[in-house]
């Protein structure tokens, strides 16, 4: 494992951000709202094993974990049996990504927590995922719109992270990259089929592209944790992924005879700082209640 640079540069300014079509630029007022990050602030100095980019990795792990939870809801509910299996596969891959990161995060944030401590024992305000992945399951077009954007984002993210200065992060990204390319293929095929299928499927797919829009900008926000991780050559600035992700999605949308919607009047924000939307609380209640009903039990 390589040693990252000294964690002294926590207060560097964000890099210039190009204005993205999804309206993703982090504004000054958002920067002001940022909260102190547990991994960055609390664990510098005291624990010699502690690394300051734990909060960044927690955001990535939580994205994968929460989306795996949502996708798991499709099993027995998909339009055909093959799709029950396919969405189960995507859920398993994302669950695997989260499980690859949580124990490592526990080893670098000074807490020594294991995967189930992160997944089952944290309250809503301690989760760092974006709002996109916590939204309730919609129709199949909604899911394909979400999966198209999220997997396109993950392809660019993990491509960049294979060059991470942290060998563990690079390793997780290398494995994940193979998986998320498949997810992107799968979502792309469906978006094209639905877009260029029947009148009804076209209408539903176009509506889904519009519904998912407000939740996209957050993926590309340069929050404090990602700026720090990028400075340390461990992470990647989310804003730098934006154009490539949009280009990937735009190609698929065009092939599906659909239209990429214009910017949204509103956008979600705050997930990386533990500010979540209404569905998150219920998601956690369902996911955690058995584990929390039996304190100290192993399964």
């Amino acid at each position: 494992m390589s040693t990252p640079a000294s964690p002294s540069s926590t207060d560097t300014g964000t890099e210039p951000v190009t204005e993205p079509v999804t309206g993703a630029a982090a504004s000054a007022s958002e920067s002001a709202q940022r909260e102190s990050l547990p991994g960055a602030a609390e664990n510098t100095g005291a624990d010699p094993g502690a690394k300051p980019y734990a909060a960044y990795l927690l955001g990535l792990a939580d994205d994968a974990m929460v989306y795996a939870q949502r996708l798991g809801e499709w099993m027995t509910n998909a339009p055909q049996i093959e799709e029950d299996m396919a969405l189960g596969n995507v859920a398993l891959d994302l669950l695997g990504q989260a499980r690859g990161l949580y124990p490592y995060i526990g080893s670098i944030d000074g807490t020594g927590r294991g995967e189930d401590d992160y997944a089952m024992q944290r309250d809503e305000r301690e989760w760092h995922n974006v709002h996109l992945v916590e939204q309730e399951r919609g129709d199949f077009a909604d899911e394909m719109a979400r999966l198209l954007w999220f997997s396109a984002y993950q392809v660019e993210l993990h491509s960049a992270l294979t060059g991470s200065g942290d060998d563990v992060v690079a390793g997780v990204a290398g494995k994940a990259l193979k998986e998320v390319r498949y997810h992107l293929d799968h979502a792309s095929l469906w978006v094209v089929r639905l877009g260029d299928g029947t009148e009804e499927s076209h209408r539903r797919m176009q509506a889904a592209l519009e519904r998912v829009l407000p939740h996209l900008a957050e993926l590309f926000d340069d929050d404090e944790a990602s700026v720090l991780a990028a400075d340390l050559d461990v992470g990647v600035l989310p804003s730098t992924l934006h154009d490539a992700v949009v280009a990937r999605v735009a190609r698929v949308v065009e092939q599906g005879t659909l239209t990429l919607p214009d910017g949204s009047r509103w956008r979600s924000r705050g997930g990386r700082a533990g500010i979540h939307s209404r569905p998150m609380g219920s998601l956690l209640a369902e996911m955690q209640h058995i584990a929390r009903s039996h304190p100290g039990a192993t399964w």
């Binding site: 798991g72 189930d116 089952m120 058995i290």
Partner: peptide
Amino acid sequence: ITRAPSLRR
């Protein structure tokens, strides 16, 4: 699936 008590399970 949504309620399994550990990630391994």
